[in-house]
């Protein structure tokens, strides 16, 4: 249990998807102008991450790894499908995002109205594929992988809401014209990331 809490806290603060790895930056920068929309997108990312990471864990460990197909019989024990990793992972993610979109559309049209445009964008949010690839590189079991996916999502949500909060205030500041918009946002993200570096001091 302690181990799980550690992984959760690590993935939210220390290994934050945005401030430590800079994954998922495109939608992070594009959709952080208002707190309310960024919160909706953040929730959707949390949901997609905490479902696709365990699914991809199962696929990696029961299909793709060298010898993982042994449960099909001895003939398959020597098969190594690792070279298919990217295409399988991204298909799982894209398919899942499309399924989520259809389910939300049917079950809760109101939520679909607010999230509508952002939902398909999650398929190309690099933090989703990035988390799946990081998960492969670390010796997690299924529960740990789920916690890692969930934690990474929460970290992303935290980052985008924080940036949106700052950007809402930035509207009233007198920024030099060429720096306005994207330029000042990058400098802000850099400074926020320096702040998050202080979490590195925690030993877990």
């Amino acid at each position: 249990m302690e181990n799980l809490i550690n992984i959760g806290i690590r993935s939210i603060f220390i290994d934050n998807m945005i401030f430590a790895y800079f994954l998922g930056m495109c939608s992070f920068l594009a959709i952080s102008k208002k707190v309310s929309t960024s919160f909706g997108l953040g929730l959707a990312v949390v949901f997609v991450l905490s479902v696709t990471v365990p699914i991809n864990w199962l696929i990696q460990n029961y299909v793709l790894n060298a010898g993982a197909l042994a449960w099909l019989g001895d003939d398959f024990a020597s098969v190594d499908l690792n070279f298919l990793q990217f295409i399988v992972f991204i298909s799982v993610i894209a398919a899942f995002v499309q399924l989520t979109e259809m389910a939300v559309e049917k079950l809760s049209p109101a939520l679909y109205g607010t999230l509508g445009i952002f939902l398909p964008l999650i398929a190309v949010n690099c933090s989703v594929l990035g988390a799946a690839l990081f998960m492969v590189g670390r010796p997690y079991n299924l529960t740990e992988a789920t916690v890692f996916g969930f934690g990474s999502g929460i970290g992303w949500l935290l980052a985008i809401v924080a940036l949106a909060g700052v950007r809402e205030k930035m509207k009233y500041s007198n920024v030099p014209a060429p720096l306005r918009g994207l330029g000042i946002t990058f400098i802000l993200v850099g400074l926020m990331s320096l702040g998050f570096l202080s979490f590195l001091g925690f030993s877990m």
């Binding site: 800079f22 000042i184 946002t185 990058f186 400098i187 993200v189 850099g190 400074l191 990331s193 320096l194």
Partner: peptide, 9 residues
Amino acid sequence: PAGACILLG
């Protein structure tokens, strides 16, 4: 990466 961000800005 933080330095990279500021530099890109």
